[in-house]
Simulated scan of single mutants.
Amino acid sequence: MTTPRRAHIGVKDVAAAAGVSVGTVSNVLNNPAKVAPATVDRVHLAIEELGFVRNDAARQLRAGQSRTIGLVVLDVGNPFFTDLARGAEQRAAEEGLSVLLGNSSESTERESAYIDLFEEQQVQGLLIAPIGDSLARLRRLRERGTPTVLVDRQVDLPDFSSVSVDDVAGGAMAATHLISRGRRRIVLVGGPLGLRQVDDRIAGAQKAVGDAPDVTLEVMDIDALTIAHGRSAGEALLRRPAGDMPDAVFAANDLVAIGIVQAFGMNGTVSIPGDVAVIGYDDIDFAQATVVPLTSVRQPRELLGRTAVDLLRRESAALAAGTRPEREHVVFQPELTVRTSTA
């Protein structure tokens, strides 16, 4: 008859079954090089027979150091943030760390809930693409000992490290490209206004248009940077009289641009780029796979995630050593990828 397993098997049970001390079991789990190979084998055999599972969370709390990093993004359904998270996860794995992902969905309440959750989990640090001005909440988090790095947010603050792309330069790059293609009536579709990334891209486009006196720029505010909202914006443009139609659309991200292309394509009366040139932002993988391959401003998405982890690790190491962390602000420059939608 098989003896039923106990509900919980601890280190003491493993030690008794292997005929060794609790300290030896601990060394086998954490520093096996300190233990004779035969003893290591005997302890692993006991672990297998007993079905022991180490309580890693408790071990981390005793050691005072978590092996997890929290990451809060604005929209996990946006491939930009998916790729950013992939880069962060890959870099964290190289350091023996794991990434816990939270999706704020551009909601301050959800963002605050994830910040609270990750603080309760005592993560090693937090990477966050913040909504609006949530820096006061993040400062309190840092004051209580959780290192925090701002992601996809260009700041020059003495108390936060950050990694971002120069979206003002990217907005200017997109508008300048359209102007160079002979376009003179540009509509910029993006929103919600107040979202820092959108505002910076608008500011860059306005600067470029300001240097071209015969060019106009109209901003069309939308509620979210999704394909559905882009399609609705495209349909709204199609309802305009012919004289009010733009000859170029700058979408604040590729998802919005894809929705606009879909709306024009389903209508069948507007050709791209013949009647209207369309440019997006981010250069996600889908950009080159649309019916009309999409010109886009490229961001180094995975590199953003990897760099954010490096900044967080350096800050965490400084705090562990009892020294003041050096604040770093890494700003990458975007690149233009030209395809059929503006060619």
Rank of each mutant, 00 (worst) to 15 (best):
L178V: 12
D199S: 09
A58C: 04
T2E: 11
G305T: 10
V43I: 10
N27G: 06
L150C: 04
V163T: 06
G64H: 07
A36M: 10
R86N: 12
Y114F: 14
V99R: 03
G268C: 06
A93F: 01
A208F: 12
I186T: 03
N31K: 14
R67H: 13
R240G: 03
P293C: 08
D167R: 08
Q124S: 09
A33F: 11
E95Y: 05
P246T: 07
E48V: 11
L255R: 03
A172E: 04
D221M: 01
V11M: 14
H329S: 02
D133V: 05
A46M: 14
A242R: 13
V149T: 00
E328Q: 12
E48Y: 09
S107Q: 09
A289T: 15
I227T: 13
A252S: 12
R142S: 09
S232Y: 06
L100A: 00
I202Y: 02
L138S: 08
A18H: 14
R144Y: 01
E119T: 03
V309Q: 02
G230Y: 12
N31T: 15
D166T: 04
D152V: 09
R201F: 08
G234T: 05
V151T: 05
T148Q: 00
V168S: 10
L312A: 04
R6T: 11
A58V: 15
R54L: 14
P246L: 10
L311I: 00
R239T: 08
Q262G: 01
F81P: 08
G125Y: 03
L237G: 02
E326D: 13
R5G: 11
D223N: 09
S162P: 11
T24E: 06
G64P: 04
L84K: 05
A257K: 13
V123G: 00
V25G: 04
P213R: 11
P130C: 11
F160H: 07
G210D: 11
A16N: 13
V25W: 06
A318E: 08
D310C: 06
V276K: 00
A175N: 07
G265K: 15
D13F: 12
L225P: 05
R313F: 02
A203S: 15
L157I: 11
S271M: 15
V14Q: 05
S296N: 10
T340M: 15
V165N: 09
F52W: 07
V168T: 14
A321N: 02
L100N: 00
R327V: 06
S341E: 07
A321T: 10
A7G: 08
A38I: 04
G64V: 14
E89K: 04
V35Y: 03
Q121P: 02
S66M: 05
P273H: 14
G191Q: 00
R62P: 07
A15K: 10
F264D: 03
E335Q: 15
H44I: 02
L195T: 05
G19T: 09
E109R: 14
T146A: 03
I186L: 11
T146M: 13
T216L: 00
D167C: 07
A46N: 12
A321K: 10
G70V: 07
D13H: 15
N55P: 07
A212H: 13
L127T: 01
S341M: 13
V11C: 14
A136C: 07
D116G: 12
Q90A: 13
S180Q: 12
D75S: 10
T295C: 15
M266P: 06
T2A: 11
L238Y: 11
P334K: 01
